[in-house]
Amino acid sequence: MQQFKVYQSLWAMERRRPDGLEWPLDEQLRMIRDAGFDGAGVRFFDYAFASRVTRTLKDYGLTWQAQCYPQTVDDLKPIIEHVQDLGADHINLQPDVRPYTVDECIPLIEGWRRLAHDAGVAVHIETHRNRMTTDLFFTLRLLDCFPDLRLTGDLSHYVVGREFAWPVSDEDHRLIRRIIDNSWGFHGRVASREQIQVQISFAHHREWLELFLGWWEYGFRSWRKRAPRDGVLTFLCELGPKEYAMTDRNGYELSDRWEEALLMKDLVRDIWTRLDKQDRDAKERAHQETSV
Rank of each mutant, 00 (worst) to 15 (best):
L10H: 15
D74H: 03
Q3S: 15
R33I: 06
G214H: 09
F212E: 05
E289K: 15
D135T: 06
A48F: 04
K77F: 00
P99V: 07
A245T: 11
L211E: 02
T247Q: 07
V190D: 08
T72I: 00
V232P: 01
G111W: 07
R178G: 10
P78H: 12
M246S: 07
D118L: 11
F212W: 13
R98M: 14
G36Y: 14
N250Q: 12
I176N: 04
D248S: 04
R280V: 03
T133L: 00
G153D: 01
L21F: 05
M31K: 15
N130L: 12
E289L: 15
F37E: 00
G61R: 14
G39A: 07
V42A: 13
F45R: 09
Q2P: 14
I176L: 14
R226N: 02
D144I: 10
K265W: 00
G188Y: 15
R226W: 07
W23L: 10
A119C: 14
L275I: 15
Q195L: 06
E163A: 13
D34L: 11
D46W: 08
P107D: 03
F212Q: 09
L236Y: 07
E210V: 04
Y7R: 06
D256K: 04
V168C: 02
P70S: 05
L115Y: 10
E81C: 05
H117Y: 10
G61S: 13
I179Y: 08
H173V: 13
T139R: 05
L57V: 11
A191M: 01
P228F: 01
F138M: 04
P107I: 12
A122Y: 01
S9G: 01
S201M: 09
P99G: 12
K5A: 04
E210T: 13
D34G: 10
H173F: 14
R131N: 10
D270M: 12
F44Q: 03
Y69P: 03
M132K: 05
R285C: 00
C145L: 08
T273Q: 14
I179V: 11
F138D: 03
R141E: 12
W23S: 10
Q84I: 13
A35R: 01
W23R: 07
P228R: 03
V159L: 11
L21T: 08
M132L: 13
E284F: 10
G87E: 09
A282Y: 03
D89Y: 04
G251C: 03
R269A: 00
E238R: 14
T133W: 06
T72L: 04
I180W: 12
T234F: 04
E126H: 02
H157K: 05
V83T: 03
R174G: 08
T133G: 12
Y252V: 12
V198Q: 03
R131A: 09
T101F: 13
D279S: 11
G231L: 07
R226S: 02
L267Q: 09
P241T: 09
A261N: 12
V6I: 15
E259T: 06
D19G: 06
Y47P: 00
V160H: 09
C68M: 05
H205A: 02
L57G: 14
V42Q: 08
R257C: 00
E243L: 14
R30N: 06
D19E: 08
D248R: 10
Y244W: 15
M132S: 08
R189T: 01
D281T: 02
A12G: 15
D59I: 03
L136F: 03
D172F: 13
L115Q: 07
A282V: 00
R224A: 14
R55D: 01
H157Q: 10
F212V: 10
F146G: 09
Q94H: 05
R98D: 02
